[in-house]
Nucleic acid binder design. Structure first.
Lengths: 339, 339
DNA sequence: CTGAAAGCGCTAACAG
DNA sequence: CTGTTAGCGCTTTCAG
């Protein structure tokens, strides 16, 4: 059996509350008390290997000191949990003495109107970080709203209490960089659907910059086709008279595929073709590092936690949607356009 | 304020214990009680949006229904947390009504002999899944042993209570497959150190199969050199008279690099060079899928949870180290050797 | 089959 | 500065 506060208090010859106050760093009375008493209690606690019971603490303090990270289990999107985000969120919470627990919700079950995921049907955390990247089920939104638990949506857009990268500004900025280098035939390309807001926003940012420059936006879109199937179609396209001189790829596999296609077409990167990627870290192949728009997974985790902590203090708050600034690295795939 | 069991009981005209038994699926008396009482209680609970307080439950049941996944924060290795493993562990636990919380431990702090990570200094979970892949700090082992909390080590070898892929058997099997195809000049290659047991074991398995076949093992080892730097050295090597006809790569970047090198050397894969990768899913480049030894991250998560659940029931158990069988997919990089 | 009583380990409020 | 008292919400004996 584990030493309880009672035992520590008895052995140290003080009362339970005294021991509690001395051993709880969060207590308002921390720093008070006679140094001798203090030291005695601490010594006894150490000797007995006293470990505070977080459940007992939770019940009296009326908070769990825990936040749940809510995730979907759908194969297609679950991989969108970045470990950087997980770690950043976990550590940001730890700094405030909170723990992080992860709760996967089965997408199939969620369609059943009678089903309520455990993380919502039980009282077990003070707030939710919801990482449903694409296709947030309407039902989940309802459930969360009804539950009234402080929640921050990560990487998806809502009326309030959400955090996401400023995809549009990022894409606009990337496009402008290409324009500044003299590019005119700049293309935006993706091989998946426009399911996620990031696809919509990246394209919008690109369009905005193009329009500002008086140029026609151009989209090369293959819906859910494997890069390998796309490849042979890209090669002739890249050697056509009106071939793009620069490509902004929605996700890592797009610029990778264009890079391969360029090689097959006998084009040099970046001399003949510039490429820009979106990725959480500088994207690279064995022999080249891509110009990359850096999705701030870490910053997103931290910002989400900061917002959530505010909401936990005051659940009536409505946090303004937070669009995070996005980084950029030049890499080796940005070149000036030839006359 | 949230509805408590008391309130539900009052409103349903029953006592607290009755309501408790009816609403706790884990209660021994579940399934008993007058159907009318039962239904009334359940209806009231639903109407009031009753949610059991897991902390209160934890305190009386003397278990937290929570398991902590312990991770290191060192940049080099933290990425070794596979999301598959996380999800598998989380869902396996959920099936038994347990939650998963993640606890990152700062490597730097861990060297301080006075420091005890919170997950160990507080009572907050029933068991630990420890995912320190490489260089498990001795101090962590001590702390865990002293703490006496049920723990399973994931992806590292210990005297007991650990789960890891059977790397040696996997590498041996992969080598035999190449031998069966007629290969003789088979090489094992890695670009990092032998820090992790998987490097040692994969090499050992390879050596075993080679020795069995009466062949000399051959290691191509670049310690902590970027693939890009290795590339130019590989090209002449692959065209030398005694060039390998097959390469087993320690981790994904190795076969990728050899594939590039082969292309630069004008060799065809798999006709001139066969490649085998180790990866948690079939490894592929844009234009090719590699023969891959599949690290069973998911199975490992599930097995770890199964073991841990046993330890939670009986903490005195010493589970035999569990080496998990490893899968294999042929891909497009396995070819017979030419005469 | 149901309820009364006790208590899990801790903290907050108040009194000394 | 320290101790007394009272409970948090739930489950578990144990009587009825």
């Amino acid at each position: 059996m584990n030493a309880t506060l009672q035992i520590v208090a008895d052995r140290a010859g003080v009362s339970k509350p005294t021991a509690s106050h001395i051993l709880s760093p969060t207590s308002r009375r921390a720093g008070l008390f006679n140094p001798q008493t203090r030291e005695r209690v601490e010594r006894v606690a150490r000797e007995l290997g006293y470990r505070p019971n977080t459940a007992a603490r939770a019940i009296t303090r009326k908070r769990f000191d825990t936040v749940s990270l809510v995730l979907g289990n759908s194969r297609a999107w679950s991989s969108l949990l970045s470990e950087k985000l997980l770690e950043a969120a976990s550590q940001a919470l730890a700094q405030h003495g909170l723990r992080l627990n992860v709760a996967y919700i089965s997408d199939e079950k969620l369609t059943d109107p009678g089903f309520v995921p455990k993380v919502l049907s039980e009282l077990c955390s003070d707030g939710l970080l919801i990482n449903y990247n694409a296709g947030v089920p309407k039902r989940l939104e309802e459930l969360v709203a009804r539950n009234r638990i402080p929640s921050v949506w990560i990487n998806s857009k809502h009326a309030a209490n959400c955090v996401y990268p400023d995809e549009q500004a990022a894409a606009c900025d990337a496009t402008r960089r290409l324009l500044a280098l003299g590019h005119r035939r700049i293309v935006f390309s993706l091989f998946v659907g426009f399911d996620h807001f990031s696809a919509v926003d990246r394209f919008a940012g690109y369009k905005q910059a193009m329009t500002e420059a008086g140029l026609e936006p151009r989209l090369i879109h293959y819906q859910d086709v494997a890069p390998r199937q796309v490849l042979p179609q890209l090669v002739p396209m890249l050697t056509a008279p009106d071939a793009p001189t620069a490509v902004i790829g929605y996700n890592p596999e797009v610029p990778r595929t264009y890079y391969h296609a360029a090689q097959q077409a006998g084009l040099r990167v970046p001399q003949d073709l510039s490429l820009i990627a979106f990725c959480e870290e500088p994207l690279h192949e064995i022999d080249i590092t891509f110009a990359t728009v850096l999705i701030p997974e870490q910053a997103m985790g931290i910002a989400a936690v900061e917002g959530l902590l505010k909401l936990i203090v005051d659940p009536t708050l409505k946090l303004k949607p937070l669009a995070l600034p996005v980084g950029f690295v030049e890499g080796e795939t940005m070149g000036g356009v030839k006359k």
